[in-house]
């Protein structure tokens, strides 16, 4: 089992959708929220995903496909 720490940033049109709930149901991924700030305009959630590596990848791909920005919690690793 692998663990991945990620940050989801939601655009306003997705604020009302239960994306994290669906992520846990559509894929074999356990979601564990650690920090979040969600308002009516925008929101971000820092969470840990646990599951098989491939299942986490597929889940993240699905979330990103919905229009959510997905970043590593550590921020951008690539530096100039």
């Amino acid at each position: 089992m692998a663990k991945r720490r990620v940050m989801f940033t939601f655009p306003p049109k997705l604020i009302k959708e239960p994306i994290i709930y669906n992520l846990g149901h559509k894929f074999k991924v356990v979601t564990n929220i650690r920090r979040a700030d969600v308002s009516e305009n925008k929101g971000w959630v820092v969470l840990e995903l646990e599951g098989e590596e491939k299942e986490i990848d597929k889940g993240i791909e699905w979330v990103a496909g919905k229009g959510v920005r997905v970043d590593p919690v550590v921020g951008d690793i690539m530096e100039g």
Partner: peptide
């Protein structure tokens, strides 16, 4: 909030600053 960088200043083009 993170952004998609688009600048000639590549050495500081970080969209999601830790």
């Amino acid at each position: 909030h993170p952004v998609k960088p688009n600048t000639i200043a590549k050495s500081i083009a970080i969209g999601n600053p830790a």
